[in-house]
Design a protein around this nucleic acid. Sequence first.
DNA 1: TTGAAAGCGGTACCAG
DNA 2: CTGGTACCGCTTTCAA
Lengths: 343, 343
Amino acid sequence: MNLKTLSEKLGLSQTTVSRALNGYPEVSTATRLRVEEAARQYNYRPNSRAKGLATGRSMVIGQIIPTSIQHEMVNPVFGDFVSGATQALAGHGYDMMISRVLDEDEGKVYRELHARGAVDGVILQGPLVEDPRIPLLREIGLPFIVHGRSTGEAGPYNWVDVNNRRSFQRATRFLLDLGHRRIGLLNGHETMDFARRRRAGYTEALAGAGIAPDPALMASDEMTESFGFARTRDMLALAAPPTAILASSMLAAIGVRRAIQEAGLRMGRDVSVITHDDDLSYLKNGEDVPIFTATRSSVRRAGIILAEKLVALIANPAAAPVTHMLEAELVVGRSTGPVPVKG
Amino acid sequence: MNLKTLSEKLGLSQTTVSRALNGYPEVSTATRLRVEEAARQYNYRPNSRAKGLATGRSMVIGQIIPTSIQHEMVNPVFGDFVSGATQALAGHGYDMMISRVLDEDEGKVYRELHARGAVDGVILQGPLVEDPRIPLLREIGLPFIVHGRSTGEAGPYNWVDVNNRRSFQRATRFLLDLGHRRIGLLNGHETMDFARRRRAGYTEALAGAGIAPDPALMASDEMTESFGFARTRDMLALAAPPTAILASSMLAAIGVRRAIQEAGLRMGRDVSVITHDDDLSYLKNGEDVPIFTATRSSVRRAGIILAEKLVALIANPAAAPVTHMLEAELVVGRSTGPVPVKG
DNA sequence: TTGAAAGCGGTACCAG
DNA sequence: CTGGTACCGCTTTCAA
């Protein structure tokens, strides 16, 4: 069923039917109701491509899958982000399109998406320090919003980020307050902006306690389970092992926990772990592990907020840059008293 | 840059330029080269919507995000599937569009996608036993391929699935061969077709060893970490606890490991765990934990295979139904000798 | 081998 | 308040 046949059935012009369906005021109520009824009856939906051609907008938002370069695996919370963003976009009539790049040349893809008119805007994931994609998107004039920020980027841009620095500062301070002095940091790749900020928060908190950061307690790499495992094992083998560890991702944390277990130690007794995670069963079940921030649900929420901002941005490109800072919740466990400090 | 201005710059008609760019044979080589050069120079890309309008195809494949109903969280391997599928689709000029439904009425979304002409085909995720979406898609005539199968579906349909039954049969048998007699199964919701098949494989293997399945050792629910934790804890508290556990997902397995640890037991010594996982560091590091199948990479591979089949299917709708069975690898650990059996 | 023109299915301007 | 018509950018007959 298309507009032409629908209007013929109604004995009206395409113009009138279109207007009735799109809420234009100059249509009589009687006609509007009649048209809406018929549209419902025939299950009419305007063709997306035709509509897009006529209006010059695609009503599609693009996103490039953030795959880790080495293992071409996707962050496990990606789905949650997409779920949130897609839901929010749908509320404004937008669809979400996913792309992927094999090589490093993400710029080529953005250029092409724009040239084809395939998307009205894009979401930029996993920003690096001094990320070249930002000036590129600005140059080609494709509306975009960044999930995260990019240190070193001078110009204005729109972003939604979680307060990584502050979160890790608080988490570190929390551990310091419990009496820990040797705190390990398993961080993401420090080309990634978020990782840089997390380390900053960590070292700031240490500095506040008069502790110089120990390179042997800081690792940064792709956040896989084996990374978490290997580095934790190394750290636990040190002459002065850490009594607490900050893990920057769910996968890494799994490795951390396993390494602790294999070393014959117990989490929350011999070694405290703070990590991004969202399963509060740790707390519910009395495990002495403070949880840092609710990744899965917060990522979903970030997707929603980000999508809303992007839609607003496209509607009004002249508006001032949009920024939004999410504060991570620091959910702490039942360990109100100090965790026994080893060594 | 659009076709009109490009052809004007070349002093050719739109027709000729279009033909040259789309590889039609009736264009002289000289013209073709000239056109291609100009297209490159001006970075010309045909407008997707216009092309789609003219050809009647959208060159877009749709997919609805499989969110778990209760916790609205997305399977962590979803991103890997999308990554694989998107990559394969891109090779054929297709884009991937993601949708999401809030209510149970996925059918409405399919109807709309089809009516709008937004997609040329869809990928169906997470099929249930007797899944109503399959007859629905058939009815509305939208090409589709199922990731998994649906027991009880009489008509023909296209699918790509992993051999869940056989995998769990082999895994169970492997444990039986090691001397285990009490084997727990943490399964997904058994409305899901894959969960039903996994249980079948499990019970078949037990039957082969003359063991009657014990309801106290079988749990099935949404595969979260807390599910894995809680049910494992329950099972370990039994008078006759399991000496091995089959966990149906990565998240559940995390919970399993934690419960084992909390009970003061050691994995691979007191309790063996077989699970879907892909981080081979377990093996590399000598942990006595057999790994069942490489989820992340195999899901990615499934995405690729599925996308290829769907593209072929759309190109030739009259062809016989496409089916593809993936055999899961059973990667076993270093425990060539029997694992000490407790109790 | 090339080009003119008629769609594809909508939107939106301009009349009436 | 309603309708005629000119696009939107591309493909595809049909003629030349």
